[in-house]
Design a protein around this nucleic acid. Structure first.
Lengths: 186, 186
DNA sequence: TTAAATTAGTCTCACGTGCAACGATCTTAA
DNA sequence: TTAAGATCGTTGCACGTGAGACTAATTTAA
């Protein structure tokens, strides 16, 4: 890999800088290298990372991404929460979450109890089986994440996290625990 | 925004570091905050950025992502290329590209000519109409990209590009122009 | 108290996309 | 020369998912 992607050990070339700072050169607007175009790179990278990880929970545990998100949300939180809450904070459509919830309940990985205070919603939580699955899955996924990002130093990983965080804020993509919990409160 | 996502103006907390460097603390493996999990963050971010951009080419020009990738590839290259080439370097399935090519041809945005050297494939190129569309679209997209990443300084954007480049390399996600052109040669 | 508006969750529908089979063409090796 | 294998692009099929209608329950405002 030499030309079409910025090399780490090189001073960025003109075109590489332009790809994210195009206003500096009017001529650069005329053409666009997909390989330098952030939205494309993010899409491709996300797809690749997802598929690299899905091997862990898809093939081995029969979980798709929505199911994994439900599992992850319930596993991380101590207390039960609603499907809507999961949809909100994972930014997944409620119908997608609904289907995942149904599938996970059939497999007895999660269970739901009626909410006495609001009978429209159900409180979801992991079963004992679900907790065991969660405990078994998490180390695998973290190890896989570790492998994928092993090309970065610890400092670079922190840097990346910080940069992504800024963009997430910029896009108002983040839901604070406080906001989420506020919606949960009753 | 305070707790669940790393704040830019704060020294990263322990858990934030652990999210990408989990081996440092065995206890951290027991739970996983989705908000700190890179694959999830990348997915969410890519989806959001895509949808923010799609307004530019979807609503206004009736282009979906595959069509846009075909357009971008042909617009960036000077010479014509095959559908397979586009599929390879955009990492998009050939059937998806095929459908996009069909749609773009019907709209007379691209055209294809037989390749005398290999009659299985067609050489694709932009029509005059396609070039005009490309020239009109690119500035819009670059401006939109600019807006999305305006929360980052120029240096931070370079940093991000560099970090993504490293991961792309690590995942062998990049296709060099040389490699691509080698497959093209005849 | 009552009616309108809102919300949680489910379900149907339409659509995009990956998979895999296919025909046509080219390449390789016997 | 011929047969087997590879490759390009297309198509049918199945599946996952977002949009939006819908029911039931709750909240708000009159």
């Amino acid at each position: 890999m030499t030309k079409s992607v910025s090399s780490d050990d090189m001073v960025p070339t003109r075109s590489e800088v332009d790809s994210v700072a195009p206003q500096e050169d009017a001529a650069a607007k005329k053409r666009l290298d997909l390989f330098h175009f952030m939205p494309f790179r993010l899409n491709r990278l996300a797809a690749e990372v997802s598929s690299a990880l899905s091997a862990e929970y898809q093939a081995r545990y029969g979980l798709d991404i929505p199911s994994w998100r439900v599992l992850a949300t319930l596993g991380f939180r101590r207390d039960a929460c609603s499907a809507q809450y999961i949809a909100d904070c994972t930014r997944t459509h409620k119908s997608t979450i609904s289907r995942a919830v149904t599938a996970l309940m059939e497999r007895q990985i999660i269970e739901r109890v009626e909410n006495a205070h609001d009978r429209r919603e159900f409180r979801l939580q992991l079963t004992r089986k679900g907790k065991a699955l969660y405990e078994e899955l998490i180390p695998r996924l973290l190890r896989r994440e570790q492998e994928i990002f092993s090309c970065l130093s610890a400092q670079e990983r922190r840097q990346l996290g910080k940069l992504l965080g800024k963009i997430e804020h910029g896009l108002e993509l983040v839901q604070t625990s406080e906001e989420a919990d506020a919606k949960e409160a009753y």
